[in-house]
Nucleic acid binder design. Sequence first.
DNA 1: TATGAATGAGGGTTCATTCAT
DNA 2: GATGAATGAACCCTCATTCAT
Lengths: 209, 209, 209, 209
Amino acid sequence: MRKQRDGAGTKEIVIAAAKAAFAERGFSGTSLAYISRQCGISEGLILHHYKSKQGLYQAVLEELSVGYDDMLVQAMTGAENPDEMAGNMLAATFRFWSEDRVYNRIAMWAYLENRTELIAAETALTAKLAGLLTEMQKQGRVDAAFSPLTLLTMTIGPIHFWTRYREQFKRALGLEGTMDELNRRFLQEYMSLIEKLYRPVTGSAGETS
Amino acid sequence: MRKQRDGAGTKEIVIAAAKAAFAERGFSGTSLAYISRQCGISEGLILHHYKSKQGLYQAVLEELSVGYDDMLVQAMTGAENPDEMAGNMLAATFRFWSEDRVYNRIAMWAYLENRTELIAAETALTAKLAGLLTEMQKQGRVDAAFSPLTLLTMTIGPIHFWTRYREQFKRALGLEGTMDELNRRFLQEYMSLIEKLYRPVTGSAGETS
Amino acid sequence: MRKQRDGAGTKEIVIAAAKAAFAERGFSGTSLAYISRQCGISEGLILHHYKSKQGLYQAVLEELSVGYDDMLVQAMTGAENPDEMAGNMLAATFRFWSEDRVYNRIAMWAYLENRTELIAAETALTAKLAGLLTEMQKQGRVDAAFSPLTLLTMTIGPIHFWTRYREQFKRALGLEGTMDELNRRFLQEYMSLIEKLYRPVTGSAGETS
Amino acid sequence: MRKQRDGAGTKEIVIAAAKAAFAERGFSGTSLAYISRQCGISEGLILHHYKSKQGLYQAVLEELSVGYDDMLVQAMTGAENPDEMAGNMLAATFRFWSEDRVYNRIAMWAYLENRTELIAAETALTAKLAGLLTEMQKQGRVDAAFSPLTLLTMTIGPIHFWTRYREQFKRALGLEGTMDELNRRFLQEYMSLIEKLYRPVTGSAGETS
DNA sequence: TATGAATGAGGGTTCATTCAT
DNA sequence: GATGAATGAACCCTCATTCAT
C-alpha cells in the first residue's frame, strides 16, 4: 500500500530489484511477479513505470551500460602516458568484471539473448585499448609482431575466464585461501604474464635494460 | 503420424531439436511446445521419454558432456610426449569451442543457471592440462615462474573470449575477410603468443633469482 | 473435472456457449472466463481447442454462415418457377432474421467490428434474389421501372427493421397481442405491400406519363 | 500540457474523441486509455469530468440523442401540410442515417448493448410519423388498407438497410459510380417506390382484377 | 482544473504436466 | 510407443478507478 506518490523513488527500488533478479535468473527466468514480490511494489505499478517487462529489462541494461562507461572514463582520466592509461584501464576492467557479479552475469545473459544494448560500451573499450596498443607498438614498447586485437584477446580473455571459472577451480582443485587471496595471487601472476606477452622480442641489445 | 514405435529414433530426434532450442533460447526461454513443433513429435511423447522438461535438459547436458569427454580422449591419444599432447588438446579445445556453437552456448546458459552437469568434463580438462604443464615445467620446457592454473587461464581464456566476441569485433571494427579467415589468422598469432608465454626465460642470468 | 476425452463433444459445448455469449455481449464484451463459467469447461481447454478467443469467434461465425447457406439452399430447392422460389426465399429470410436472435445479433456485432465472415452468405442471397427479380422483370411480372437492387432493399430492409424495432414498438406504442401475433399480422401486411410494390403498373394509361 | 483550467473546452474535446472511439469500437472495445491517447487528455482528467467510463458513454449518447431531436424538430417546422411534413421528415431521416456514420454506428452498438438512451428519440420519430400517416390515411391520401406502423417499417427499414449494406453491395456487385451517385440514384427510386406504396388503390375499377 | 502515481481485478494466453485412449 | 484431451497455475499486460499533489 505504498501511497507515497514518489515516482522516481519507486523506479529506483524497482530497478534495483530487477537488476538482481535478471542477473540471477535471466530475462525469461524472471517473472514480474517475482520482482514485485522482491521489492514490494505491485506488478501494475511496475508496468505503469516501465511499460513492459522488456522495457524494464532495457532500463536495467542501459543503467549497466552507463555504469560501464563511467568506469571507463574514470580509468582513462589522470594518466600521463599510454602505458599508465592502458594499465589503469586493464586494472579497472579486471575489477569491474571480477567484482561486479551483476554486470558480469547480465552481460552473459544479454549476449545469449542476442541483446545489443551492452555491446556498445564493451566495444568502445576494445577500440580504445586497441588504439593505445597500436601507439605503444609504434613506440617500440609493445611487441609489434602481433595485431592489437589478438593481444587484447590474450589480455581480456583470461580475465573473463578467471571470473567465470575461479569458483569451480577452487572447489575442484582444492585451492587454499579465500577467494580474495586467490584473486590477488592470480592478478599478480597475470600482470607479469601480460608484461611478458607484450614485451618486444629483443635483438642483441636489450631495450628494457 | 509417427506410429513407428521406435523409441530410440524418437529420442534422437527429440534431443537434437532440444539441443538446438536450448542453445538458442536457454532453458526457461524454451517451451516443450516449441521443441514439439520443431521436431514434429507431440509434447506428450517427449514427456513420456524424458519424464519432464528438466529431464530432457539433463539428457541434453549429459550428451554434450560425453561429447566433450570424447573430444578430450581423442586429443590425448597418440601423442608421444607431453608437448605434443598439450598441443593436441589445445587445438582440440580451440576447435571445440570455436566451432560448436551449441556446446558453447549451452555451457554458458548452464553456467548462468548454476547447473553443474557440464562442469565435470571441463574441470577434468583443466586438471589434465594442469598436470601436463607441471610436468613440462619440471622438464624446463615451460616457464616455471607461474602456477599452471594461471597459465591455463591465460591459455584457454582467450579462446573463449575470441569465440564470444569475434563477430562483434568483425562488425564493430570493420575487419575484412570471412570469419574462417579471421579464425585462421587469430589461431596462428595465438599459437605464437602461447609459445612466447610458456617459453622459459632463458639466458645466463637467472630471472627469478 | 471433465475427464471425458471427447474432443468433438467438448467443442460443441463450447461453441454453443460461445454463440450465446457473443450474441448477447459481443466479442470484446465477452470474456473467456465467462464462456468457461457458462459451459463448465476450463479456459485452458477452450484455448486448447480453438487456439485463441479470435479463433473461437471465427468458428462461431463460420458455423452461423454455414447455417445461413443451408437455409438458402433449402429455400431454393423444390420451387417450380421464379415466383415461387422468390417467395420461398423471402419467407425463409423473414423466418431466419425474425426468429434467429443469435444470428441476428451476431451479424450486427460482426458488422460493427468490420468482420467479413458473415457477409459472403448474405451477399450471395442478395445476388441470387437480384437475379430472380431481373428475370421476373423480363417476364413482365415485376415492375421494370426500378433496379432490382433497390427493390431488394425495399424488400429486405423492412424485415431487418421490424426485427430490430418490434419490441420497442410494442412497448412504446402499447401494441396489444403477443409478439407472435404481431409478427403474423406484420408479415401478412408486409406481403401485400411487397406485392403492391412489385406489381407492374398496368393499364392503358402509361404509368410514367 | 493543458493547464488552461478550461473545463468546458476540455469536455468538448473529450466527448468528440469519445464519440469517434465508441462509434468505431463500441463501449467495451474502447478503453479510457485509448480515448486519452486520441485527445491528449489524461485519463484522470476525463474521469474527473465524467465520473466513470459509463458516465462518459452516457454523455455521448445524450448528445447524440439531442442531435436527433434537433434534426426532427427542424424537419417538422415550416411545413404547411402533413404531406410536406412527412416528406421533410423522411428526407431528414434519410440524410441523418445515411450521412452520420457516428450516430448510425453508436445507435447499433447501443441497441446491442441494451441501452435505452437513444431509443426515446427514435420512438418519438416513429410515433410522430405514425400520427401523420394516420391523418393522411383519413384524408384519403395514403392507402388506408395498412397499419401506419407497417407502412413506417416499409419506409424506414430500407433506409437503414441501404445505409448498412451499400458499401458491401458496391463491392460485391461491382456497382459503378461514386457512393454519392449511388446514394442519389437510390434515393430517387426509393422516393418513387414509397409513393407507389402509399398511393391509395383508386378508381371504380378493381385494382387487383 | 489537471496530472500521474498507485491499485487490484481481470484480460487472453502459455506452460508443464497428467492421463485416458 | 504415441496422441491429444484436460488441467491449473502462472505469465504479461490492460483496465477502470482512486487519490495525493
